[in-house]
Amino acid sequence: MHPAPRPRRDRTYRVVIALFRIVFRALGLRFDVRGAQHLPADGAAVLACNHLSYLDFTFVGLAALPRKRLIRFMAKKSTFDHAVSGPLMRAMWHVPVDRESGAAAYRIAARRLAAGELVGVFPEATISRSWTLKSFKRGAATLAVRERVPLVPVVLWAPQRTFTVDRHYSVRRGKTIMVLLGEPLRPAPTDDPHAVDETLRARMRELLDVADREYPDRPAGEGDRWWLPAARGGTAPTLEQAAVLETAARERRAAKRAGR
């Protein structure tokens, strides 16, 4: 008998991973992954990760490879509508999120979990321009509570040094990317998602402090402090300033869509 063929979504996913690994090698990126053992070797779980760049899903996905797992990420619907990324996102079984219809995304994510998959969520919803944790939406906590699966806190540090918002990008070789996975939260079905969300945020803040404290790279000079938070001596906007910038960017996108 021949072994059952891999699902097409997994074949596509593995090709995409291989391509990104080639790109990362070309960029000379170094990866410091810690806590991969906290990721379940099988069965469903929700991964909640901070959001610093357009490439975050690739970095979290790489961290799951030692456990031989693939992650189905919740991502904004526009990436599924794009002519290039759309077919790939659908083929990899990711979850489209329409902000006007969040319930539909929840149902799809719940089906992924019921199938024993890992579902990746960015609770901040959008990239943090301050490089610190923004306020969370409670989707990750709600999924974990209602679907009775573990909730794994994940923190990235330094993806903002690759390709992120406000035209910040760099192809300079030799940057370190840190990925820290914490012990899973195992909420009970009777737990309040709000309380679980608060615990998740506290765990992620602790991991982010560790990453920031132990990150090996330093700015090349005063002009290279943009990727450090203001509280750490960097020139990134504060959380309040970042909120203003995000609102302005959102308004520009809305105006562009309206053709003004």
Score class of each variant (00 low, 15 high):
residue 54 Y to I: 00
residue 245 L to W: 13
residue 244 V to T: 07
residue 97 V to L: 06
residue 98 D to M: 08
residue 142 T to N: 08
residue 172 R to M: 05
residue 94 H to T: 04
residue 203 R to P: 03
residue 128 S to L: 00
residue 104 A to T: 13
residue 103 A to G: 07
residue 259 G to P: 10
residue 29 L to H: 15
residue 98 D to H: 04
residue 22 I to D: 15
residue 61 G to N: 01
residue 84 V to W: 06
residue 134 K to G: 02
residue 92 M to W: 01
residue 31 F to H: 11
residue 86 G to Q: 02
residue 77 K to E: 13
residue 185 L to A: 08
residue 126 T to P: 02
residue 234 G to R: 01
residue 260 R to P: 06
residue 133 L to I: 06
residue 126 T to G: 05
residue 84 V to L: 12
residue 260 R to F: 10
residue 106 Y to R: 12
residue 140 A to V: 08
residue 15 V to Y: 13
residue 138 R to K: 14
residue 155 V to Y: 04
residue 86 G to E: 03
residue 81 D to R: 10
residue 159 P to V: 08
residue 235 T to N: 03
residue 128 S to Q: 04
residue 176 T to A: 00
residue 37 Q to V: 15
residue 170 S to Y: 09
residue 61 G to I: 03
residue 49 C to A: 15
residue 167 R to W: 06
residue 187 P to T: 01
residue 114 A to K: 07
residue 114 A to R: 12
residue 53 S to Q: 12
residue 186 R to E: 11
residue 32 D to C: 13
residue 201 R to M: 07
residue 143 L to Q: 00
residue 235 T to A: 00
residue 148 R to F: 00
residue 127 I to G: 01
residue 154 V to Y: 00
residue 139 G to W: 07
residue 128 S to H: 00
residue 201 R to G: 05
residue 197 D to N: 14
residue 140 A to S: 07
residue 212 D to Q: 11
residue 199 T to R: 15
residue 91 A to K: 00
residue 51 H to W: 10
residue 15 V to N: 03
residue 154 V to K: 10
residue 227 W to F: 15
residue 110 A to H: 02
residue 189 P to Q: 11
residue 101 S to A: 12
residue 182 G to P: 10
residue 186 R to L: 12
residue 141 A to V: 09
residue 218 R to H: 03
residue 109 A to G: 02
residue 152 V to H: 03
residue 70 L to H: 05
residue 225 R to S: 04
residue 210 V to L: 07
residue 173 R to M: 01
residue 58 T to R: 12
residue 33 V to N: 13
residue 22 I to R: 15
residue 8 R to L: 15
residue 196 V to Y: 10
residue 70 L to I: 02
residue 187 P to G: 05
